[in-house]
């Protein structure tokens, strides 16, 4: 196996283009290294971008936050900018894996891995983030189009995530995040949910709901969002939403939980976050 350490993004992309399938890109390494150890990936070339400091940043402009691909989850978790403008992501980052992992894992790695339970994906869905992908040319993909299936994303072999852009949320919007796992640290989500609601008193102007671990990929709950938007939020409507969510998701059974439990919890968590945002 060869090890390549490109000096900049351009150089990295060039190498990826050159090696295609034979190469594995590594940054924080918290997904790639266990895969290497288990021989689940057997690349001929490792392209290490972990030292590209220019890709690790959290910046804000008037309307958006820009998060560099190599920003670690710890940096997300402790960032004042994120806490202020994307608190959902702050919550999720604080509960991802464990502190040692968070110091290595990057936002791009968490997304590119394409896990249906990816912890940062769920708030980013609710926040309508944009994934900036750099390949031959730069393109911007809304996060809801980024995931394709279990461990599959739109990323091509010669592309990588460069940045994640989050529109600053309306400070009057309400948000809530909830992760249900089997323990309080080092837990893979059994179900996770993030919501962002813009409300005028009890009238819902906008609803964005992200879910993890209830489908082959992290998803938005469009039908429920539609049921809520431009509606007066009544007990009855919320109950109907909690029923509808079961039809909108397609969880699997695994060692952590059955699909029935996940379905029920998707509804329970929806009820909970709704309660929180409507209070």
């Amino acid at each position: 196996m060869e090890y390549l350490r490109p000096q900049n993004l351009k150089n990295a992309l060039h190498l990826m283009k050159q090696w295609k399938k034979k190469a594995t890109l590594i940054a924080g390494g918290t997904n790639v290294i266990p895969d290497l150890r288990a021989r689940a990936v057997r690349p001929e070339v490792l392209i290490d971008i972990s030292h590209l400091k220019s890709l690790a940043y959290i910046k804000e402009d008037k309307r958006k936050i820009h998060i560099g691909a190599l920003t670690t989850v710890s940096e997300l978790a402790s960032s004042k900018i994120i806490e202020k403008w994307a608190p959902l992501l702050s919550h999720a980052a604080n509960q991802l894996g464990n502190p040692l992992v968070r110091n290595r894992a990057t936002i791009a790695g968490n997304l590119a891995d394409g896990s249906p339970a990816a912890d940062t994906a769920v708030p980013l869905l609710a926040l309508e983030a944009i994934v900036v992908i750099q390949g031959g040319k730069e393109k911007q993909v809304p996060i809801h189009q980024f995931f394709v299936g279990p461990n599959q994303t739109v990323l091509k072999r010669d592309e990588m995530i460069k940045e994640v852009i989050i529109p600053k949320f309306n400070p009057n919007a309400k948000t809530a995040y909830f992760k249900l796992g089997l323990r309080n640290s080092m837990a893979v989500s059994v179900v996770s949910i993030a919501v962002l609601m813009e409300m005028e008193k009890t009238f819902c102007k906008k609803a964005r709901i992200g879910y993890g671990a209830v489908a082959p990929k992290p998803i938005r709950a469009y039908r429920v969002e539609e049921m809520l938007e431009n509606k007066e939020l009544t007990e009855r409507l919320l109950r109907a939403c909690c029923e509808t969510i079961g039809k909108e998701i397609s969880p699997i059974s695994d060692i952590r939980a059955s699909k029935e439990y996940r379905t029920e919890m998707a509804s329970v968590l929806l009820k909970r976050v709704m309660k929180r945002v409507t209070q």
């Binding site: 090890y3 350490r5 590594i26 924080g28 390494g29 918290t30 290294i33 266990p34 490792l46 290490d48 972990s50 030292h51 710890s74 502190p99 040692l100 992992v101 110091n103 290595r104």
Partner: peptide, 13 residues
Amino acid sequence: GKPVNACLTLALQ
């Protein structure tokens, strides 16, 4: 200065 798992870090990193 940051605590990390040495098993989740390549030596070359």
